[in-house]
């Protein structure tokens, strides 16, 4: 999916201070990193800020990039760590809406701004896909990120192990567990896919 040799050439040009090479790297990874950040946070503003911070961090750390690794693994590692840190910092903002009660003890909806896709886009997407996105979004962060890396970014188990700095066996077990959780959540919500 990502061309390791071409990436390495661009990184070397970046290290020499070539602006055009960084712009090209940005073009290659823009949507992948933004997509990962959006699906991790489900908030347009947060996703944009996080993805931009990832690219600026990448630029500032370029000299520490070890060329024996793929650039794609490195940038995904920075992005996943950044998103998980963000979710940890903002844990209070991601409380479940189920079972939230008002001051009088009556169930109520939290008045959170909806930064998700607008009604037109919702209509365009299939209902099943929306439900699946909702379930994936509700996974705990460590399971969510691994599912997104595997299925959305199409990374191999080996690449995910490098990105998350985990043993291959743990990656495999966590992906299996995440898929099982998705199935259980779909069933619990009576969603069909």
């Amino acid at each position: 999916m990502f061309d390791r040799i071409e990436d390495l050439k661009l990184v070397r040009r970046c290290k020499r201070g070539e602006e055009a090479a960084f712009a090209e790297l940005l073009g290659r990874y823009r949507n992948a990193i933004y997509g990962l950040c959006f699906r991790m946070t489900r908030r347009t503003e947060d996703a944009r800020d996080l993805a931009q911070e990832v690219f600026i961090k990448v630029f500032s750390l370029l000299d520490r990039f070890d060329e024996t690794y793929a650039f794609s693994s490195w940038i995904f590692r920075i992005a996943t760590n950044h998103c998980i840190d963000h979710l940890r910092r903002n844990r209070m903002r991601f409380l479940s809406l189920d079972g939230f009660t008002g001051p009088d003890g009556e169930p109520m909806d939290l008045p959170l701004p909806d930064d998700g896709p607008g009604p037109d886009r919702l209509l365009e997407r299939s209902e099943a896909m929306e439900r699946l996105e909702e379930v994936v979004a509700d996974l705990p962060p460590h399971y969510k990120v691994i599912i997104l890396l595997r299925h959305d970014q199409d990374l191999s188990y080996e690449d995910i192990a490098v990105v998350l700095d985990l043993p291959l066996g743990t990656v495999k077990a966590r992906i299996h567990r995440a898929r099982a959780m998705i199935q259980q959540m779909l069933q619990a919500r009576s969603y069909e896919i």
Partner: peptide
Amino acid sequence: KLGDLPPLEA
């Protein structure tokens, strides 16, 4: 379906 999540654009 997981592989079919629509691509997102920045």
